[in-house]
Design a protein around this nucleic acid. Structure first.
Lengths: 149, 149
DNA sequence: TTATATTAATTGTATATACATACTTTTGTA
DNA sequence: TACAAAAGTATGTATATACAATTAATATAA
């Protein structure tokens, strides 16, 4: 009922089509929850995503192509996003010793601190998701993984 | 396992955080499936979305603000998207008689035919989703609706 | 070793998007 | 009626994205 009401579309050709629309719509809904968290720091969702990946690597560096591989959304301009983050002093870049084509990208202390602040506020977003129990969240995860095969 | 493998991130702070990441990732995965369907027609996801809404209204027109309300992703430039579609002869625009502020946007025959072609190919995408049974797709729909409250 | 192919990253260009603002028409109210 | 407020679109600007082309370094193979 909820989705139909939200987008005012009553019928779908199949349950699978409805699921596709539902995932796209829910993704947009999630984005709306996150955007106002990132904005005070001048970060886009993609930039936040890159920072998270870099924190996962910390204290090791990541190459631009590693970032491209792991980004959640489509990519293409990881280079430019990294440059934006560098201008904010959230990451640093240095030539890779072993392969001078590569660039070592590292999250800075300021980057780590910024992530911590944002993540503290993200907790509230998760609380807003408590309409689902942990078991139900697990079920969503299981089904989405199965969907992608 | 699947998500962890896909983005090479082993631990999440909670099942709800993992679910959030999973939805965002799955949305990107879906986008990848769709993009190559739209590209031959020079359509973006948003433009396709608008065409679908207009087909839902057909033979009635839709105003720009109605389109903005119902679009799945964030919007802002429904005006510009409509203009792009008009340039491709997929929609037509005319001044609304009753309220001269509004614009009546209508899908054209060419627009309807284009949607039909795309939707025929979308069937294959849904077949690719047959890793989930109908019951499981229903369960995803139920849980996502519950998530958004 | 030298030529060729592949890989990593950057840049150019066109389009898409977010956000604020402006413009026109309608609505509401004194 | 006249005037302010609201509604429906459109536009300006900055940023983000998709895709192709370019540059530089490394790997491969004759």
């Amino acid at each position: 009922m909820e989705l139909e009401e939200a987008i005012k579309q009553k019928k779908f050709r199949s349950e699978h089509e409805k699921m596709m629309v539902n995932i796209i719509y829910t993704n947009g809904w999630l984005g709306g929850q996150q955007v106002h968290l990132f904005k005070p720091y001048g970060l886009s969702q993609q930039q936040y995503n890159i920072l998270r990946i870099l924190r996962g690597q910390h204290p090791d560096p990541a190459s631009v192509s590693l970032l491209m591989d792991r980004m959640l959304d489509k990519m293409s301009n990881a280079s430019r996003l990294v440059e934006k983050l560098r201008q904010k002093d959230l990451v640093s870049r240095q030539e890779c010793k072993h392969d001078r084509r590569q660039v070592d990208v590292l999250i800075t202390e300021k980057g780590l601190a910024t992530l911590e602040e944002i993540d503290a506020q993200l907790e509230q977003v998760f609380e807003g998701m408590s309409t689902l129990t942990i078991e139900e969240a697990q079920e969503v995860n299981r089904l989405l993984d199965k969907l992608r095969g």
